[in-house]
Design a protein around this nucleic acid. Sequence first.
DNA 1: AATTTAATGGAACAATCGTTCCATAATAAC
DNA 2: GTTATTATGGAACGATTGTTCCATTAAATT
Lengths: 193, 193
Amino acid sequence: MGRLKAFDPDDALDRAMRTFWQHGYDATSVDDIVVSTGVNRASLYGTFGDKKQIFLRAFERYVGASTVANLDAATEPGSAREALVALFERLVSRSCDGRNAGCMITNTVAEFGSRDPEVLAHARQALARIENALDRLLRRAQAFGELPADADARARARHLMATMQGVQVISKINSDPRLLKQICDQAITAAFA
Amino acid sequence: MGRLKAFDPDDALDRAMRTFWQHGYDATSVDDIVVSTGVNRASLYGTFGDKKQIFLRAFERYVGASTVANLDAATEPGSAREALVALFERLVSRSCDGRNAGCMITNTVAEFGSRDPEVLAHARQALARIENALDRLLRRAQAFGELPADADARARARHLMATMQGVQVISKINSDPRLLKQICDQAITAAFA
DNA sequence: AATTTAATGGAACAATCGTTCCATAATAAC
DNA sequence: GTTATTATGGAACGATTGTTCCATTAAATT
C-alpha cells in the first residue's frame, strides 16, 4: 500500500557513491546528491535518513564493490604472486583513467580525522577486510612455496596495504602508470623476498 | 605609520596550520581560525587574504617545518640507512602521540581531489621535495656501498614515499606503534635489498 | 598637537548549508 | 470507488558559511 518509489535505491546509492568518492564528504552538498541521483530531497531523506547515513551506505557500497570484489579474486587457486601482480595492475590502470578520485576509503580516513567515531569504525573495518584478504593471499603463497614459511605474512600484508594506500594518494598527483607500477613492483618484490 | 599589528603573523599561521592539519580545509571554518589564532577576522583578511590563501600559507609552513626539516637531516654524513631508520622511527612515534592528524600533505591531496589546481600544485611540489630528499638519501647510500650501485634509487625513493603516505593513513585508524614500525621495517628492507 | 595611515572589533552581508514541512500524486487494500 | 498509506515536488526553515564594511583605536610622521 502507498505510492511506489520512482527510483531504484541501489542505483541512487551507486550514483551518490560516485559523487562522494570524487568530491569527499564536506565538499558534496545534499543538492549535489539530488542532482547526481535525480532523486528528490524529500525522497532521499525518507529512504536513507540524513546526509551522513547516505554517505555511510554509499561507503559500504564502495567497499563491497570496488575493494573486496577485487581482493576476493585472490582466494582463487593458482599462483598467489600472479594474483597479486594482477591486483596491483588493475589498481594502477584504474588509478590512471582520466579523472581519478583515488581510493574512497583512503580519502575518507584522511578527511574524517577522528571527528566521527561511526565513520571511523566503518573505515577501520574496511581496511581490516583488505588486510585480511592480503594476509590470506600471502598464506596461500606460503602453501604454494612462493613465500618462505617462516615469513611474517601479516606484517607483509600490512606493508602491501600501506603501499596500496600510498599509491592511490600519489596517483591523484602524478598519474603516470609507469611510475605507479614501479612502486607496486617494489612492494611485491619486498612481499615475496 | 599606522597602527601596529597586535599579533605575530608567523605565530598565527602556525596555529592556523595546526587547525587545518587536524580538521582539513572544508571542516575548518574561518571562525575556527579566528578562535585558534586569537586574531580578528578583519585582521586575518587584511593580512593574508581569503580562507584559501590562509590555508596555502599554513600548508607551506607545514611543508617547510615538518617534512623538509626532518628529511634534510638526511643530507648529513654517515650511514644513510641509519638515517632512514631514524626518520621512520620519528614518523611512527609522532603518528602515535594521542590525537594524530596524519600527514597534512596526504590529507590535502585526499581532500582536494583535482578540484583546485593551485592547491594541487602546492601538494605536488611538496611531494616532489620529499621524493627528491629520499632519492638523495639513497644515492648517498650507494656512495657508501649500502646499496648496490645499479639499483634504481628513484624508484625506491618513490616506494619509500608511498609507504610513508600509507603509514600515515593507517595511523589514523590504528595507532599501534609496533604495527606501524613493522610496515616501515618492511619498506626499509625493500629499499636496501 | 595635528595628521595620516593602518589595525582592530563587531555588526552585517548574501549565499549556501542540512533539514523539515506540506500539499499533491500515486498506489494497494477494502 | 473509497480509503489508507506512502512517495513526490518544491517551498521554506534556521543555522552557518565566507566575506565585507565601518566606526574606533593606535602608532608614526610632520
